[in-house]
Write a protein that binds this DNA or RNA. Structure first.
Lengths: 185, 185
DNA sequence: CACTGTTTTCATGAATTTGTGAAACAATAT
DNA sequence: ATATTGTTTCACAAATTCATGAAAACAGTG
């Protein structure tokens, strides 16, 4: 049935599954539905850089239907990218780029806009008073965050680049030749 | 408090309920359970600055039991403050201070720490490879955000103070603090 | 135009989550 | 003490969400 390339690495699969579950828990605690969390966590933790729906299903050991349901909102939220290769009948999903978290952060812009809109609308219906004032402050906060988000991301990317250079500066540490290419599609 | 003196502003209560619901929707979309979202939204929108459990129940028109269940995690998350006055048998809940959103932001620190921990642990169990590298990046991102959070909040507070002074400072017109608001933009 | 491998939709059953009324539980004031 | 006021816990009913298998819908290939 499911052909495991090599079973000797059972240990590794366990560790991986555990890691995936751990990440998924954090995500669900932040309100992301379980299945979406698992898919994202798996894509984060697993070594491949893209996955077909069935690879995801196999990797997490759930039905393909569940994958289908989870992948759509993930793509919509911008946490997964769907790439379709010409001449292939399978869609491929991949985490956004190398820098996943920048993508995720930037994705929050529209959400903040919705806050701005909603608070503004609500304010327009409410009389003066502390409540309305708090709403206004909320609106201001969301607006501020929206303008600051790109800067924050930029700073993160700079920081990230710095970490990278210091890490790879003393390169010659591939360490584990296990880094076999799985992207030989 | 400023609740039903009689039933004069029925209109207003409707508008308020609508505003509360609107805010609550945004919160639930971010993963906060419905009841918690309503309580928080109500505390944000309503004019009072503190509420007993029963006032919350009345305001949202829901059983006190539901309030009790919703308030606990809110307090735990640091979104509500529970203040007990001596010589009163009722707990009072209030939004954190004037600057709600600073409090909320700062509250995210521990969560980021958990991410750092979880990713580190997961990494320690995984072999070298792209997946592990992505986990590491996640860890770095969370760490960065944790260190940057206070700065971000500080900048927001400065920005906020500026908004405040421009609004109330020169013009000596605190009567209508947000007269600048034109919704037809 | 059938054939094949894949993804999506749909109805179903299961599990989880919600909100409620009623009772138990403080803490105070009389 | 005991009555009073207010909060929390408990068991349960209702509503919602989940994940699955089976089958339909797609897209590419010979």
């Amino acid at each position: 049935m499911t052909e495991h390339a090599h079973e000797p690495e059972h240990q590794r699969d366990d560790a991986q599954a555990w890691a995936v579950e751990r990440m998924a828990v954090l995500l669900t605690e932040q309100g992301i539905p379980r299945m979406m969390a698992r898919v994202f966590a798996f894509a984060l933790v697993d070594d491949a850089d893209r996955y077909t729906a069935s690879e995801l299903a196999e990797g997490i050991r759930v039905s393909q239907a569940a994958i289908s349901g989870a992948v759509r909102p993930l793509v919509h939220m911008g946490l997964l990218d769907r790439v379709r290769e010409p001449g292939a009948r399978s869609d491929h999903y991949r985490l956004y780029d190398e820098d996943v978290w920048s993508a995720i952060m930037l994705q929050r812009g529209p959400l903040l806009e919705r806050w701005e809109q909603a608070t503004a609308e609500a304010m327009s219906q409410l009389p003066e008073g502390p409540g309305r004032r708090r709403l206004n402050e909320t609106r201001e906060f969301m607006a501020y965050m929206r303008t600051e988000l790109p800067n924050l991301v930029k700073r993160w990317q700079e920081h990230r680049a710095q970490l990278h250079t210091t890490q790879t500066g003393a390169e010659a540490t591939p360490a584990t030749p296990e880094a076999e290419d799985r992207e030989t599609h």
